[in-house]
């Protein structure tokens, strides 16, 4: 399995290289002069020339490309056009917040979504099933910023249980958790709704399988049939969907981050976009690709834990 992981990571290299090349080309064909963007409209001709010289924009394209790759590999991702801070540093500063949030909402989603989905499937077309289905549909269609504001109103302002601004420092675990709670619940609700629906439909499929009939024919108690025989099979499509959704979630958590005033990749992306911070966007695209590759790898490894038919070869 270690060999499999190593091979997958090795395969990630060409993917990353392709993305970096694409990023390099995209930035060069975007209309407008980066030097002009950095220095503004009032900049003198001399200043522009000097800036181009400093950025290496007047050198041949292939030279620029080699430089770009070399710098990227050595950890020099350039500086933000807006703040002037090193890009890699800015990204690494917010990355832990994003990872916390994603993992926490995944845990909440799995913890509530899987039992709810199973419960709903077992009571198919009865009241609990309808309630769960409507509830999960609401959870999916409810805009994240509305639920975020509602959570803030109730738990931060009325009840005063959690901070209104979740930025906070990361000095202690307690503090991290306190700041994480509401944003994680907010995204966790969506995740729960998602996982509930997938688990329900997948469970219904599995309950009709021959091997479930075999399990009943053995005289096993219902709980053994459901939790040992059915659930593990039902989780296979759940892992697929969650894996796909996680990638989306990392970029889409921006609404939650904005409402809770919490740093994160999503907020960084939106900030860079609105301020035309091209260098920052370059870095974000690369890091985002990397995250997707890792998430896909983890998804594939999870398959192997659930389904013995998956071979790592």
């Amino acid at each position: 399995m270690l060999a499999y992981v190593a091979r997958r990571l090795l395969l990630a290299v060409p993917t990353l290289l392709a993305v970096m090349t694409l990023v390099f080309v995209l930035v060069r064909i975007v209309p407008g002069d980066p030097a002009q963007t950095i220095l503004g409209d009032q900049a003198s001709q001399e200043a522009l020339m000097a800036m181009r010289e400093r950025l290496g924009l007047n050198r041949p394209l292939w030279e620029q490309y080699i430089d770009f790759l070399r710098d990227a590999l050595s950890g020099d991702w350039g500086n933000s056009m807006v703040t002037g801070h090193p890009i890699l540093q800015e990204i690494l500063n917010v990355l832990p917040y994003t990872i916390d949030l994603t993992v926490a909402s995944l845990i909440i989603g799995a913890l509530f979504g899987i039992p709810l989905g199973v419960w709903s499937a077992l009571h198919r077309n009865r009241l609990v099933d309808y309630v769960t289905r409507v509830g999960s549909l609401l959870g999916l269609s409810f805009p994240a910023f509305v639920s975020a504001i509602l959570l803030l109103l109730v738990f931060s302002i009325e009840l005063n249980w959690f901070p209104v601004i979740s930025a906070g420092d990361r000095s202690s675990v307690g503090e991290v958790l306190e700041n994480l709670a509401l944003p994680a619940i907010n995204l966790g609700l969506i995740m729960t709704a998602y996982i509930t629906r997938v688990t329900r439909s997948s469970m219904l499929n599995v309950l009709g399988e021959d091997y479930i009939r075999t399990a009943h024919a053995k005289g096993l108690p219902n709980r053994a049939v459901i939790w040992i025989h059915a659930l593990r099979n039902a989780l296979i499509p759940v892992v697929t969907v969650v894996g796909l959704y996680l990638g989306i979630l990392i970029g889409n958590s921006v609404l939650t981050e904005i409402v809770f005033n919490r740093p994160g990749l999503g907020k960084l992306i939106v900030g860079a976009l609105s301020q035309r911070d091209y260098t920052m966007l370059q870095g974000l695209m690369v890091i985002y690709t990397f995250i997707i590759i890792i998430v896909n790898l983890l998804t594939d490894l999870t398959y192997g834990l659930i389904d013995p038919r998956v071979k790592y070869s």
């Binding site: 399988e209 021959d210 091997y211 075999t214 024919a217 025989h229 593990r232 099979n233 659930i306 013995p308």
Partner: peptide
């Protein structure tokens, strides 16, 4: 009373030994 089914390919649980 025990029962053996027609479909050996699908009557065993694929994720259990």
């Amino acid at each position: 009373i025990s029962m053996v089914f027609q479909e050996p390919m699908t009557s065993l649980n694929p994720v259990l030994t």
